[in-house]
């Protein structure tokens, strides 16, 4: 081996030791092993329900490139429909959870008033609301309401918990600086709660995805990924069904990944390491 070659090899080995690169390599190996196992099992089992990875890949590409003959829309449009519902449901939950969570955390009377109701509704799985919401809000607002209810509680409890965990000494410090009750709220309690809110959003996003798919499976106008999956399964087109599942996985990963990033940025800006 020439000297130059060995230096190149050293550099390559050094690169391998960098944590980011090391971790990505492990991730790739893990995914490759998963796909390989799936492939082998699919071939050995030879079931219509379990297509091989290349078949699913083909269906996936096709679903983006061409309109689905039974639905009349491409995967892009399905994603757009789901994202719209997701966004609307999330926005609604946000609008309710922030004032409610802050009020419950800050005011004792409000807490006592709202808590029993919240505690009764919290244990009901969001999916259990699907039939009811579809019946009264129909296929557009129905799934949105399911997302709303699914996201509401993680948001609410995180904000509430945030307000409750404000360190009393910070309130004392603000009071000795001359803060009014209102100023204590806007300048101490609210900023203190922001990192908790971000955590609530991240957790809410995960739950929101599950809700949207479940809600759309019952029905969705203008498509939607959940609707797409259910339709393909009903038609016996299992490669398409798996393609839809992969789309959900990727979207879920993307949204939580972006949220995790935003959470870290916020935490740094809020002086939390």
């Amino acid at each position: 081996m020439s000297e130059e070659e060995s230096r190149g090899l050293d550099e390559a080995l050094e690169l391998l030791n960098k944590p980011l690169i090391k971790n990505s390599i492990v991730t790739i190996i893990s995914l490759a092993m998963f796909v390989a196992t799936w492939w082998v099992v699919a071939i050995l089992a030879d079931l219509v329900y379990l297509p091989t990875p290349p078949n699913v890949m083909e269906a996936l590409i096709d679903s983006f490139a061409n309109e689905d003959p039974n639905l009349g829309v491409t995967m892009w449009q399905n994603i757009w429909s789901s994202l719209q519902r997701f966004g609307l449901g999330f926005a609604l939950a946000f609008l309710v959870a922030i004032p409610l969570g802050l009020a419950m955390g800050y005011s004792k009377i409000f807490d006592l008033l709202a808590k029993p109701v919240v505690e009764v509704f919290r244990p009901i799985p969001p999916i259990a609301w699907v039939p009811f919401f579809i019946a009264i809000f129909f296929y557009f607002w129905g799934p949105i309401m399911v997302i709303f209810i699914g996201v509401l509680f993680p948001l609410l409890s995180n904000i509430y918990f945030g307000v409750k965990s404000v360190e009393p000494i910070l309130l004392d410090a603000a009071r000795t600086q001359g803060a009014s009750r209102f100023q204590i709220f806007t300048k101490v309690v609210f900023p203190y709660t922001i990192p908790f809110l971000m955590t609530g959003i991240r957790i809410g996003m995960g739950i929101g995805w599950m809700c949207i798919v479940a809600a759309e499976m019952i029905g969705g106008v203008g498509g939607g990924i959940g609707f797409y999956i259910n339709l393909q399964a009903g038609l016996g087109l299992y490669t398409n069904m798996f393609a839809g599942m992969i789309v959900i996985a990727v979207l879920g990963l993307l949204t939580t990944g972006i949220m995790q990033y935003l959470e870290n940025v916020t935490n740094r800006r809020m002086g939390i390491r």
């Binding site: 360190e167 000795t176 922001i194 002086g271 939390i272």
Partner: peptide
């Protein structure tokens, strides 16, 4: 009256 605390009591986000 200005107060100084043993625990510092600084606002971490500021």
């Amino acid at each position: 009256r200005g107060m100084v605390f043993q625990e510092f009591a600084l606002f971490p986000w500021r």
